[in-house]
Design a protein around this nucleic acid. Sequence first.
RNA 1: GAGUACCUUACGCACG
Length: 430
Amino acid sequence: AQELTVLLSQLGRLHLGDRALEVFKWMEQAGGYPTDNRFAYSTLINICGRERKVDTALQLFQKMKDKQIEADTVIYNAIMDACVKGRQWTRAELFYTEMKQRGIPPDVFTYSSLITALAKGKKLEEALQVLQTMEEDGVAANVVTYCSLIKACADCGQWREALALQDHMAQRGVQPDAWVFNVLLSACDKGRQWEKAFEIFKKNADGGRVPDTVTYNSLISACQRGGQLKQAFKILDIMKKKASDPKMWGTVKPDLYTYNTLIRACGDMQAWNSALGVFQEMTRGDVQPDVVTYSALISTCAHSRKLELALEVFEWMCQKQVAPNTITFNSLLLACQRCGRGQEATEVFRKMQTFGCQPTAASYSNLIGALGAEGRLQEAYQRFKEMQKRGIKPDSYSYHAIICACEVAGDWEAASQLFEEMKESVRTEP
RNA sequence: GAGUACCUUACGCACG
């Protein structure tokens, strides 16, 4: 039975989740194998979580209940984690309630998942209250708990609260580690406090903490949001120097995140040329561009109003067999919109669907904006109706785009009518 | 004694 668990978890680590599930199913049907135990089930549920197969995870969990296999804390932790990874945050909370009802004690793992689930559901207050609950339950918070909480605050736009948790941590005698350090930098980044990020960085470096790749990547991201492109490139240089330093043991090395973040940073400065430089540098090295790289590059072209270049980049990625996704196409549509090119936008929009990418409100807003800029109000309005027919709710950007289209075409009456409609729609669902 | 949690990157930025 132990060997089965080891086998399944190894398959999981090799990203062979489907194989693991097949093996398990086969053994179950063949009979005589030790499949009916909580270890096998928790391993499989964990694999489903990693591969974002929440439904399969839930089915397994139900089957386990049907078979009367006793559930324990670890299984509940695994299913909660799978729900969080599959963006089913409320369901994760429900499992937490259920385990308590069944008298299965939550542990420090449970609480970390719960914090994440609450934060993703924008329930920051409740997430922070988990610390209190843990204390009452006699479960000691650890670094992971604090990491989750700091990230929770950052994701909910509360960077001050995030940084304040450092004191709380110190009071409980929890020693911050590299992950806490990095998540603090990320909190500064998200809160657009790039100077604060450097402050924390210096303080830690002076205290002897060794920055790793994630640390530098977070700093580059902070520079990006702070509009500090020069500084971002300086950090890249530092990383390259450290990468060739044998004393660093390869702890610092520019990776996909590094390059992708830099390309994104160039977008804000309309430095499409620098972005191309970064792209070429990565293709020369051993970092292969991925869909994020190409999308970021296209987005940078969009910000620089370089539609032709954006389309060319799209060709490159197709040649390299990197599959575009909805964000890639949205970036292309943004380029069309910024250049006011309705025809190209229509073409990109059509292509997007042949690639099986579902349009979002952003796709339509950009398409409508591109058509509107050319005064093609009829088509723009058709698209506006089409998105609603397809169950995509127009948001403020969509209204903005269609109202602009009316204005370009000089149809003030339609514009003011849509304006009223927009006010109504934001009132019913803000 | 086998199984579970945490950090960094791309899409609307208003030239509306």
